[in-house]
């Protein structure tokens, strides 16, 4: 299985590759990708340098152009596709049909991967994108159980890539408008979920309050661990109790599923986190490289080493991890 690692800048890209990533994925410094955060991502003039570094090391470079252009901004997405081809990327990660059509017709040799933001969760949806735009690989939303992933891999018309580690979207990616409901900005509209400019923290008599565009996401008694205020990890009242109505702050970690994912024929595993720092990218990539190498030599005897589990837990959101939807009872 191919290890696909995130990079929000050139140092992270180097860290990912130096620590054993088979491929890196990056985005441009605008709203054409779903991690459109201030200070993150690559200037157009740096794209070729990024690709060059990957290629010299024998790794691949993917460019995420995985948001949904609106007519006013179309030129940026078109430009992104054009420069990606010039820069020599191995694949584009795309979500919008208009972008796919443009790429497939103008740059027929450019390999297309279906982004998780396109929300394809079944073989007929995948088949449509394969037939219409010639996509070669799809990244699956984090909503399928392991059994469903295994079954889909058997019947999928394209290679599959799944999320292995990182922040956990509880909702089907590309089909979540909770962020824009609170703030007016969302991954689909502008490439960001719950942007930092809408986040506020207040000390009150009831503890530390986190708000998203004025809406109270949570209250933390002194001394408790706080989480970034997003609706899907907030604590609210429903049916007379106050609890994490959607999900606790937690991260996805599937390292124990590696043998089963390999057996299912999953082509690539993806690490989330282009917004993370270089040290994080280096550490996570190193552990997953070691795990994949161990898997290829030990096969069925593969076990998760204690130090991997400990390191991954230590850098996870909320300091604990879950198998998420892969594990049916989670659902």
């Amino acid at each position: 299985m191919e290890l696909v690692a995130p990079a929000g800048n050139l140092p992270s890209l180097k860290a990912a590759i130096d620590n054993g990533a088979d491929a890196v994925y990056i985005g441009m410094r605008n709203d054409t990708n779903a991690r459109h955060f201030p200070g993150l991502n690559f200037e157009e003039s740096n794209l070729a340098k990024a690709v060059f570094y990957a290629h010299v090391a024998g790794a691949k470079a993917f460019l995420a152009i995985n948001t949904y252009p609106q007519p006013q901004g179309w030129a940026r997405w078109q430009r992104a596709v054009d420069v990606a081809d010039d820069a020599g990327f191995d694949a584009l990660i795309v979500a919008d049909m208009g972008v796919m059509e443009y790429a497939a017709s103008r740059h027929p040799n450019l390999r297309l991967h279906l982004s998780v933001q396109a929300s394809a969760t079944n073989r007929h949806a995948l088949g449509l994108y394969q037939q219409q735009f010639g996509i070669r690989r799809a990244v699956l939303p984090r909503v399928l159980s392991l059994e469903q992933v295994t079954r889909l891999a058997k019947h999928s018309p394209v290679d599959l890539e799944v999320f292995a580690f990182g922040s956990l979207c509880i909702m089907v990616e590309g089909r979540c408008q909770l962020s824009s409901y609170a703030t007016g900005k969302s991954p689909n509209l502008c490439g960001a979920c719950s942007p930092a400019e809408f986040v506020a923290w207040h000390s009150t008599a009831d503890g530390l309050e986190s708000r998203l565009n004025g809406l109270l996401m949570d209250r933390f008694p002194a001394g408790t661990v706080t989480g970034y205020p997003v609706i899907c990890k907030g604590r609210f009242r429903a049916a007379d109790s106050v609890y994490h109505v959607i999900e606790e702050p937690t991260s996805l970690n599937t390292i124990e599923l590696l043998p089963l994912l390999a057996k299912a024929g999953i082509k690539a595993i993806k690490i989330e986190g282009r917004q993370r720092g270089t040290a994080y990218v280096a550490q996570v990539t190193r552990i997953w490289r070691a795990a994949l190498d161990a898997l290829s030599t030990q096969k069925d005897a593969f076990t998760v080493r204690h130090e991997w589990a400990e390191s991954l837990a230590g850098i996870s959101e909320g300091a604990h991890t879950t198998l998420g939807a892969y594990h049916r009872p989670w659902q």
Binding site: V172, R175, I246, W330, Q331
Partner: peptide, 9 residues
């Protein structure tokens, strides 16, 4: 308004 879909109920 329907705003989001999940594997979880």
């Amino acid at each position: 308004m329907p705003l989001a879909y999940s594997a979880r109920c």
